[in-house]
């Protein structure tokens, strides 16, 4: 039943990192008050719930993501995995629970011992630590590739234009698009668009980057180039990542930890090996079996 074992170039470093993260997570268990600064999770969900009308899509999520940790989220459509990311990006408001970013509540402000709903300014400040790449790219069609990437540094971070352009060029070089910087998004392929979107999010230097099914809207032959870029970022960067994906092989290669969500809950989590080779829950076993039978689309 095992997926073919593929060792990525960074397998060793990834294992080291996994161990480190495991240690810090064990460290966490001693209790929140003894947490030192270096073990503060970059993101923490505590009892997070979300309903759309009558439908409860998240039924109480508890999750810590450590600095630099790469977490893949898999699960059937409608299992709430996208909502998990959208709540963190403040695109939806949670119906209950607390989300913390580097120990600071995202939607709340601490007042004495209690928490009160935060204003937009507080949310904006905390949000600056989060970046997101969307399934449908959402590039700005009225701006060139370069302008897409410099828009936020110049107008949000108030970076001098020359510096912003310098950084944007470096980032576009990294994703292999330096020769397209004066084109408009309409002139690019899907894979190129998504790489611009990645550069645009990266240039803001978030502490955690959310990838919401970044290859689901791509033609099959363009999936590889985007996954390669994400993988490279994952291997180099100390930025945490939440990867919502249907690319099982990719999740296996890149993630330190894999979460399986179903029915609005995290049903099972563990290392890629644990999840893909020794799935415990029936639901995960059934889900993986469906993929193996070719319903999920392959990777690369």
């Amino acid at each position: 039943m095992a997926l073919p074992k593929v060792l990525s170039r960074s397998e060793d470093t990834r294992k080291q990192r996994t161990q480190l993260i495991k240690k810090t997570q064990e460290g966490l268990k001693v209790g929140p008050n003894q947490r030192s600064a270096e073990t503060t999770p970059v993101v923490r969900y505590r009892g997070v719930k979300k309903s759309f009308g009558e439908v409860e899509v998240l039924k109480g999520i508890d999750l810590d993501i450590m600095p630099g940790e790469k977490v893949a989220v898999i699960g059937p459509s409608g299992s709430g995995k996208t909502t998990l990311a959208r709540l963190l990006m403040t695109l939806e408001r949670p119906s209950g629970g607390i989300i913390e970013v580097e120990g600071e509540p995202l939607y709340h402000k601490r007042v004495g011992e209690g928490l009160v709903p935060a204003d937009e300014r507080h949310i904006a400040r905390v949000r600056s630590k989060i970046g997101m790449v969307f399934q449908h790219f959402n590039l700005f069609p009225h701006r060139t590739v370069l302008q897409n990437v410099t828009e936020a540094p110049i107008h949000v971070k108030k970076m001098p234009r020359r510096l912003a352009e310098e950084k944007a060029r470096a980032m576009l070089e990294k994703v292999g698009l330096i020769e397209h910087i004066d084109k408009y998004p309409g002139q690019l392929s899907g894979g190129q668009k998504q790489r611009v979107a990645i550069a645009r999010a990266l240039v803001m230097e978030p502490k955690i980057m959310l990838f919401d099914e970044p290859t689901s809207a791509l033609d099959p032959e363009l999936v590889g180039e985007v996954l390669a870029v994400i993988k490279e970022i994952a291997e180099k960067g100390d930025m945490a990542m939440m990867l919502i994906t249907h690319e099982m092989q990719f999740a296996r290669e890149v993630a330190d930890r894999v979460l399986f969500t179903d029915g609005g809950k995290i049903v099972e989590q563990g290392t890629p090996e644990e999840i893909f080779e020794h799935p415990k829950s029936e639901r995960l076993q059934a889900f993986l079996a469906r993929f193996r039978n070719g319903f999920g689309g392959g990777s690369q």
């Binding site: 695109l91 904006a124 997101m132 969307f134 700005f140 949000v156 999010a201």
Partner: peptide, 9 residues
Amino acid sequence: EAAIALNMS
């Protein structure tokens, strides 16, 4: 949504 993700006001 993209603009929010880039923290634009």
